[in-house]
Design a binder for these strands. Sequence first.
DNA 1: ATGTTGACATTGA
DNA 2: TTCAATGCCAACA
Length: 112
Amino acid sequence: MNERSEDRNDFFEKVWEVVAEIPFGKVTTYGHIAEHIGVKSAARTVGWALSAAAGSNLPAHRVVNRFGALSGKMHFSTPTVMEERLRSEGVAFDQDGCVRLDLHLWIPGEGA
DNA sequence: ATGTTGACATTGA
DNA sequence: TTCAATGCCAACA
């Protein structure tokens, strides 16, 4: 019943599910999440799902864009909580303030 | 109801 | 190489 409705909700649900699977001290990108979900081209919508998850228990701070930049830091309680939190997890940052994806990039399904 | 924006990514010119 | 346009899904005005 209302399978369509579930589908709509399913997108967010999948995003949350993947984000919740991100291991400590690791980060992933919107594209990888979207790709794992099945809607590879919907990386933007993933960001929307995270905005909805900003008030959830999901480690949305572990999700960054393809450049490793903390694009959504401004959506947190404070624009500094994201970087501080990642640093607190042992995540290394680049001189540009971007996360070292080369060191902490985690892909959904890889760590499962 | 329609159009625009939004925490992005990819491809084309 | 760099710039611009497009695609995706959902929420907001």
